[in-house]
Simulated scan of single mutants.
Amino acid sequence: MENSFNQFDNDRVLIAQSTEAERVEFYKKTYAHVAGGVLLFIIFEFLLLQSDALVNFMLSMTQGYKWLLLLGGFMLITNYAESTALRTTDKNLQYMAYAGYIFAEAIIFVPLIAIVTKFMGGEGMALLQQAGIVTLTLFAGLSSIVLITKKDFSFLRSAMTIGFFIAIGLIVAGTLFGFNLGLWFSVGMCALAGGSILYQTSNLVHKFTTEDYIPAALGLFASLMLLFWYVIQIFLDRD
């Protein structure tokens, strides 16, 4: 996610040009909002899973072209939420965009979490806990690399764009022709998610202003959830 408005607002200070205290405060706010997003996602997911009708409907949407329609709708919501958070300085609108995106993530996760928890029982809960620990560990490690080294990973943007288009093509082909993308696809998507975390964290250091902690958190949260999805898939394929 690229910051598109800070260059037009002279009252805003780029993180790269701010004081050490301002940078630390910005990082605290950003990661607090990421943590808040994770907590809100868990609440949304818990409430959504209480409805058997919704769970059954979402499971039915994973079949054939319906899954492609669902993914397409999710991508539209993602683009709208990101563009809204970036193009406005109104904190209320930014929070609404962030909350809306978190809810969309919770919806898209319903069939996967339902399969793991409702059909695998206690083993499913253990799998989710393990996947969560692995995801958070990788996220923290990758973010630390950027925050410590201050390296600019913006060069990853082109490679990630190509990678995501290839991934979308494979998902469409797999859905239409009924073949399983398998373990190595999930590994490749984890690598893409890792690259996205590096890129988004790099934006924290080099692209955003001191007031952009909400869009910054949204970008990091999106990368975190992508990584979580495919870490779960790897655990499922392993079992």
Rank of each mutant, 00 (worst) to 15 (best):
S154V: 07
S186V: 06
T161L: 14
V205F: 00
Q130A: 15
L220I: 13
K207M: 10
I171R: 01
L128C: 12
L192G: 02
L142R: 01
S144D: 10
G194V: 08
W184R: 04
I214S: 03
S158N: 11
F208E: 03
A217C: 14
T210H: 04
I145S: 04
I171W: 00
I168E: 00
G194C: 11
I171V: 15
L183S: 07
T137C: 11
S158W: 07
A193F: 00
G182S: 09
V172I: 15
A191I: 14
I171F: 01
T201I: 02
R157L: 09
H206L: 01
T201R: 03
P215T: 09
F221D: 00
G219K: 01
A216T: 09
Q200H: 12
A217E: 05
A159F: 12
L218R: 02
G219V: 01
L218T: 08
Q200N: 14
D152W: 04
N203L: 09
R157I: 03
P215S: 10
N180Q: 13
T135F: 04
L138H: 05
L176T: 08
N180H: 14
G182M: 03
G178K: 05
G163K: 00
H206F: 07
I133W: 08
G194N: 06
L138P: 02
G194L: 10
F177H: 07
T161F: 13
S144T: 15
V172T: 13
I197S: 01
T201C: 06
F165R: 06
K207C: 04
E211Q: 13
A159Y: 10
I168H: 02
L176Q: 09
K207S: 11
S202I: 00
G132P: 04
Q130T: 14
F153V: 04
Y199T: 10
K207V: 03
Q130I: 13
T135S: 10
L147S: 08
P215D: 10
V205T: 05
I145L: 14
P215H: 08
T135V: 08
I214T: 06
Q129A: 15
L218K: 05
I133L: 15
A131Y: 07
A131S: 15
L136W: 12
L136H: 09
L156E: 04
G132W: 07
M160C: 07
M189V: 11
A167I: 02
G178Q: 04
G169T: 08
I162A: 15
L220S: 05
E211I: 11
K207G: 05
L147C: 09
M189Y: 08
L128H: 07
D212L: 11
I166D: 01
H206T: 04
F185L: 12
N203H: 14
L156G: 05
T175K: 02
F155R: 05
G178V: 01
T161W: 10
G169L: 08
I197Y: 03
L136R: 10
L128V: 12
L136A: 15
C190Y: 01
T149W: 09
G194E: 06
S186I: 07
L136P: 05
V146A: 01
L142Q: 03
A167E: 03
M160W: 00
K150R: 15
I166T: 05
N203G: 15
A173G: 12
F139P: 00
F155S: 10
T137N: 05
